[in-house]
């Protein structure tokens, strides 16, 4: 038998590649996980509270109780992801011991380290990280992230920040591709990112890993908007289980993500699904409320 290698970057990034085109849903109970799986979620994110409730509760938000993660792993056959605090490598060790399929080093939880993110190369389980711009994205890849999500403002039901950041990353990738080779080193410095990864983006014409959109996506049209803007897939946090009819919303968002270029289908799936989660206007958030500014 040939030698096998586990935990390679290929294998880590590979799972994210398989999720492309899909919807990953935040769930807090096994029952919600089953609803998500039945609705066609491609993976679930196991949490103690959805971002809207974390926002409401205040205080320090930590990794979920392992018993919640285990129950959710037991309830579904799709991949189960879970969140750790930025820089909290022991929470990540715990989730690796639980064999979660992906770890989200997430600004939704209260950061544990204001300077350093987790050294993600030290783990066999792959990591997804958030980014608001290309520099953040490439720094996370340099630390070993095998998947990205452009940040929105979690738990707000307001898609404006998700749009801003996906557009920003796309615009910077376009600029990078058009930068002459002899100016790349300078651009890498400006982006505070390794030159080697900057060169790779230019060579391939795109980000080296899959990039989902997250934060504030609350309707089927929101999901299709992010897909048309070039996201590889969608994370929906509070948008499903804070809506009036989670089953209907979950199915509608899955179908709108699949048929993101077909307005007739988006119209059809948006009909009679009840009210979306209540939204929050960005201007009402204080700087301390803004999760996206954490871990940059």
């Amino acid at each position: 038998m040939e030698e096998k290698q586990t935990g390679t970057f290929n294998v880590k990034a590979g799972l994210a590649e398989m999720l492309k085109g899909g919807v990953i849903m935040d769930v807090t109970t096994p029952e919600q996980a089953v609803i998500a799986e039945k609705a066609g979620a491609v993976a679930v994110m196991a949490l103690e509270r959805v971002p809207a409730d974390i926002r409401a509760a205040g205080g320090v938000a930590r990794m979920a109780d392992p018993s919640i993660v285990k129950k959710i792993q037991h309830a579904v056959s799709i991949p189960v992801m879970a969140k750790v605090r930025i820089g909290h490598f022991v929470e990540a060790q715990v989730l690796e011991a639980l064999e979660v399929d992906y770890i989200d080093e997430s600004e939704v939880l209260t950061p544990a380290d204001e300077q350093y993110h987790i050294d993600k190369w030290a783990f066999k389980v792959p990591f997804v990280c958030g980014a608001r711009d290309l520099g953040e994205a490439l720094r996370r890849i340099a630390e070993g992230a095998a998947m990205l999500r452009t940040k929105g403002e979690p738990g707000t039901g307001n898609v404006v920040e998700a749009v801003r950041h996906l557009r920003a990353v796309n615009a910077q990738v376009r600029r990078l591709i058009n930068t002459p080779d002899d100016e790349l080193a300078d651009l890498a410095k400006e982006l505070r990112s390794p030159l080697e990864i900057v060169r790779k983006v230019k060579e391939t014409g795109r980000l080296p890993v899959v990039n989902f959109s997250a934060g504030g996506i609350a309707s089927p049209a929101d999901a299709a908007l992010m897909m048309q803007l070039g996201a590889d897939g969608i994370f929906v946090g509070s948008g499903i289980f804070k809506s009036q009819n989670p089953e209907a919303f979950a199915r509608a968002i899955v179908r709108a993500t699949l048929h993101f270029n077909d307005p007739k289908v988006i119209a059809e799936v948006s009909e009679n699904i009840g009210e979306a989660m209540p939204g929050v206007e960005m201007a009402t958030l204080t700087p301390a409320d803004r999760m996206q500014d954490r871990g940059i």
Partner: peptide, 10 residues
């Protein structure tokens, strides 16, 4: 098994 057991080989 789960993702930790994903692998590559020849």
């Amino acid at each position: 098994g789960r993702q930790v057991s994903s692998f590559e080989t020849k």
